[in-house]
Design a protein around this nucleic acid. Sequence first.
DNA 1: CATGTGGATGACAACGTTGACATCCAGCAG
DNA 2: CTGCTGGATGTCAACGTTGTCATCCACATG
Lengths: 355, 355
Amino acid sequence: MSGRQGVAVLRRSGSSRTTIKQVAGLSGVSIKTVSRVINGGEAVSAETLRRVTDAIGRLNYRPNALARGLVTRRSRSIGLVIADIVNPFFPPLVRGVEDTAAAQGYNVILCDTDEHAERERAAVSLLLEKQVDGLILCASRLPASFLREVADSGVLMVLVNRALHHARTASVMVDAAEGGRRATAHLLDLGHRRIGYLSGPPSSSSNAGRLRGYTRALEARGIPFSQELVAGGAASIDAGRKATEALMAIGRRPPTALFAFDDLMAVGALEELRRQGRRVPQDVAVVGFDDIEMAAFVDPPLTTVAQPKADMGRLAAARLLEMIEGTPATGPRVVTLTPELVVRRSCGKHKEAAK
Amino acid sequence: MSGRQGVAVLRRSGSSRTTIKQVAGLSGVSIKTVSRVINGGEAVSAETLRRVTDAIGRLNYRPNALARGLVTRRSRSIGLVIADIVNPFFPPLVRGVEDTAAAQGYNVILCDTDEHAERERAAVSLLLEKQVDGLILCASRLPASFLREVADSGVLMVLVNRALHHARTASVMVDAAEGGRRATAHLLDLGHRRIGYLSGPPSSSSNAGRLRGYTRALEARGIPFSQELVAGGAASIDAGRKATEALMAIGRRPPTALFAFDDLMAVGALEELRRQGRRVPQDVAVVGFDDIEMAAFVDPPLTTVAQPKADMGRLAAARLLEMIEGTPATGPRVVTLTPELVVRRSCGKHKEAAK
DNA sequence: CATGTGGATGACAACGTTGACATCCAGCAG
DNA sequence: CTGCTGGATGTCAACGTTGTCATCCACATG
């Protein structure tokens, strides 16, 4: 009676995990031989293999990755740092990373930062303590000096939508400026001349790029950039709503078209315009960025600049794994993808141009 | 020249990570004292504290979590297994888990299964090898016998939307049947009598529950369940489209309302109905399930049964951490939340009822 | 003055695995 | 028969921490 209780207590949580030693005992070989069986590659006699495999099954043994990692100095985990998994831009990217990693036996440790540099720094620290074999940082907010320091200390990194010149760092980028240019040029082609920009987080280099493309497209047609037509500050539906409200309140000549930092903001714009009784695209045209799944289903379906999100994730992971495994690189250290404009129904000819 | 190269080669990837021993050397104390400083709690003289802290900073030392985990038998990581991060149901849940875990210094290792039991089993195995302190399994497809075996071996688990009677396992559930009942009753109240069900993955217990609620609501009004009005088989927009096509093709009397397993399928239904030139809600009413973000923005905005996704994630993580840390449980081992019907515009009075 | 007492520190053995190296034996060439 | 080769196995020391148990010292107590 009390004996049974004793066992129950002993086993509380961790229970006595079975170790390689027990497997060795049961199969009558040394732990090294068990290790050989587990890892394969080294020669083991058929009979021994059978006995060990059998014992492993019987004991339901699982190698301890911590111990293994300690001696091999490899954890077979990678760290993935993103702003916010709830932002629909990220899930396909995460999925791309996960699939690629899992296919090679790696795990992904995920961290959200909410766009805060401080949380990002903490995440990187924690991940390094966990001895991840490499890091994928999306739209990092961290100063280049910090990133360089991390890379200098021997950490392998792939940056998404950010560049850093360093031997141990690669990048997967989408040409934000070109995307911004295309979106804006499309609106200009439709006759719009007063085009507002719904700005994302100011700390974001993607935001800077998209804004640059917007400005360039404007200037290429001889239209000067006007700060008055820029509002916003965060990548969310609500921020889009508010920024739209601000821009449409410009007394004399409110914009006839809006280019949003991302689709969430564009959806916010759609909402706000509807609330104001303005029709899209007849009264105001809207273009987004990212092509999140929702973009095709809102009312009206959103014209937007598509980023190949899953591909970006896959590419980033593949490159990182190459670096980790020491496979000779199969491509340049910085891959830049060009985003495509997806035309749906949220843009139309501007009334004045139609004359 | 060649010397420099030599160093570069030596440092290749892992570089010489700094260890507690080096910190001890630089600060002139034993490694144990450094350990005390790192972990706090034990008394250390002010002077020693200063010197050690200083050395840690100078060497940019980071404790090795693998080594620590090996001796403490705790990894401060938890495993989170979900079907597919791209399904918008999951991100808020993941976020809830992540936030709660991060707040207590835990990391989350994420695995997608694509609803395949086999991939789920592999994920659980891998996570256990990584010595996670606990597991959160969402809508597990694994046989109860397997789960029980895992739990028996000492693993702490929290199941989301699945029950398992076991001392080391807790559950966070949403009452799927009640949700299905409410959705269906709402349609019945509006006068609909031919209500189709767009079925999700057959292996899903949530699907079974929602279907049960649908059947019950029907029968409570004396309407017999008809297999003919059920179609589908996967939780995706495309599956929703196809299932809708199938149901609307029922020659004599196609349904006047559709209740979808989830919002993705409902969105597919909206698409298909639009394609067929049927108006929603005038010709066909549609109700979804989950209340994903997109639901409020599609055309027309979707009436749906809301699951408190982030709360579910937070609850699950909080419960798991309690179990890990051995804090006396603050609530029942099975929490069941009741989903709420969110009425938007995709349902309307049925024409015949309006007479 | 002898004796606790408790704060600050260190030595050393784990933790579970793999890598380097040693050993053993059978078979085969000379 | 000798000596080699190489396949199959084992021994032992890492890996970087923390826990257990000393040790040492200063200071208060009786």
